[in-house]
Design a protein around this nucleic acid. Structure first.
Lengths: 118, 118
DNA sequence: CTAATAATTGAATGATTGTTCAACTGTTTG
DNA sequence: CAAACAGTTGAACAATCATTCAATTATTAG
């Protein structure tokens, strides 16, 4: 590190602020989980899948058709969304129908949209 | 594509569902902006920076110290957060003090935390 | 049982990205 | 002015990741 701790003059005026703030921070494990959750919404394809499922439950085949992508690509992303408990799957005959896991997903997306609209 | 549109029997029962759902979807530009917003929260370091700034405005030097990372690494991430209008910067002497841009950031994070806690 | 449809999976590939390092710009102090 | 501090920036590197392709599982129809 070219900047070591003692380089900062400001720190000498507030010698305890670093420890104080550190004490208030959530654990790294919690932050990691939170980052993983946001990461699910951070990819355009996953976001579009979630948007589609807000309109209607759908089989993989339909989702792929709506988004103009391969079934394989969609299936890979659905697996991530399912592992993150953002969607659930139920089998109906040969098809597997995916749904949003709960309303929290809608809230998260609505919140993001509000911020984008400034 | 190994699965073409006409392969799906379900589609023949609901021939217009794809077009109906497509018509309700937001534009790709909107979805892209939304994904970019979520991407800012999707990295542990950026998330920790935002958490630190929730406790107190801080100079780059302090943030680096609290998180145990180099000033350079923090500065790179702060640039992304500033471009996304999630933080603002003001110069005070030799230091640059960073702050959360607005309360929307807090809302977004609180929402994510609620979902992580199930 | 065989053929066809629906979906999943693993490996490979190309693109993106977070951190490091070194060089650089601003600001203050002597 | 020169020296020191605070922060920024660009290139390079390693790691992560989304998509493709091919092979495979599961279900249904003939």
């Amino acid at each position: 590190m070219s900047h070591s701790r003692d380089d900062c003059e400001f720190l000498q005026l507030h010698p305890h602020i670093v420890e104080q703030v550190q004490a208030e921070l959530p654990s790294e494990a919690e932050q990691g989980e939170l980052a993983e959750l946001f990461r699910m919404f951070a990819d355009p394809t996953r976001l579009r899948i979630l948007t589609v499922l807000q309109v209607s439950d759908m089989c993989v085949c339909h989702i792929a058709e709506v988004l103009g992508m391969t079934v394989s690509a969609i299936s890979h992303q659905l697996r991530l969304l399912k592992n993150a408990r953002l969607v659930t799957a139920r089998r109906v005959g040969k098809s597997v129908i995916y749904s949003l896991a709960d309303d929290h997903v809608r809230v998260m997306m609505k919140n993001g949209e509000d911020h984008v609209r400034e």
